[in-house]
Amino acid sequence: MSRTLVIAAHPDEPEIYAGGTAALLARAGHAVKFLTLTNGDAGHHVMERGPLARRRAEEAWRAADALGVVDYGIFDIHDGLLEPTVANRLRVLAEIRAWRPDVVIALHADGPGHPDNRAAGRLVEHAVAFCTTRNVEAGKPPLARQPVCLVMTDYASLGFHEPDLAVAVDPVIDAKLDGCLAHASQFLEYAPWQRGFLDKAPAEGDVAGGRAFVEEYWREFLVADERARPLLEKQYGADRAAGVRYAETFKVAEYGRQVGEGELRDLLGIFG
């Protein structure tokens, strides 16, 4: 069974951008870890940094339980202050070496949007370059080979994200939605306040209402779009793909170990 490491900038991003794939991997017996490179302590309109960071860590572990993720690491870096420095690169390198993943899923390194997100993508790209290099010290032994790396979309990369792979997540959509709802500070409070629909947010604990709310307002990260459709047909066949409603898409990164389509399918093991 494979080991997967999903690396993002803030708690709640692995869940909405790759939570379904993580849940499928977990159900197939793979070990999945989430890692965020900031603690998310800027993301609220009412709470102060310290209490918010503690709350978001608690939410992260509830999300992990919903998805079957076995570990959730959060760097002690303030939200909004992540930089692609050598020191942070070595921290990411140490995490990759410690988890020893077969697959790394990361954010796009270039483009618009939150500077933390782009910095997180760049840090992963640069860390992977040295994960097998013996003489680059990071406190953990080097890997025997580089992981296969996939790039997930985020809110700012939707316009230029060009996926190579689509994963049907219908069997685990409730787990993905519940993983998002575990981050109540974001999906029921801060993001609705930012985007002007806080008055429509259901109460925390309203599972059915919460799932419907996330699906309505985060639809672009849940429902298969026109870019996913031909990839779904390729992966699952036309008949099965026609019945798919929910999907996540990934681009095979230009960095990391390069594999053919068949080896990638076998490595993930979730397309049967």
Rank of each mutant, 00 (worst) to 15 (best):
L5K: 08
E13G: 04
A26L: 08
A26G: 04
R27A: 12
A28S: 13
H30D: 14
V32W: 09
K33S: 13
L35R: 03
L37D: 04
G43I: 01
H44L: 09
L52H: 01
A53C: 03
R54I: 07
E58H: 10
A60M: 04
A60R: 03
W61E: 14
V70C: 15
D71R: 14
D71L: 15
D71P: 00
Y72K: 12
F75Q: 05
F75V: 02
H78L: 13
D79W: 01
G80I: 07
L82K: 00
P84F: 09
T85P: 00
T85C: 02
R89Y: 01
R89D: 04
R91H: 04
A98L: 13
P101K: 12
V103P: 03
A109H: 05
G113I: 08
R118T: 10
R122G: 06
L123C: 06
H126R: 15
V128L: 05
A138R: 02
A138V: 00
G139T: 03
K140A: 15
V148C: 11
G159D: 11
G159I: 08
E162N: 12
A166T: 06
V167W: 03
A168V: 04
V169I: 15
D174M: 11
L177D: 02
D178F: 01
G179N: 08
A182G: 06
A182T: 03
A184I: 07
F187H: 10
P192R: 11
Q194R: 14
R195V: 09
G196L: 09
K200R: 15
V207W: 13
R211C: 07
R211D: 06
A212W: 02
V214N: 03
V214Y: 00
W218D: 08
W218I: 06
R227T: 01
A228T: 04
R229S: 02
P230F: 07
E233P: 01
K234C: 03
G237R: 12
G243V: 05
G243C: 05
F250C: 09
K251F: 04
V259G: 07
L267D: 14
I270Y: 03
G272F: 07
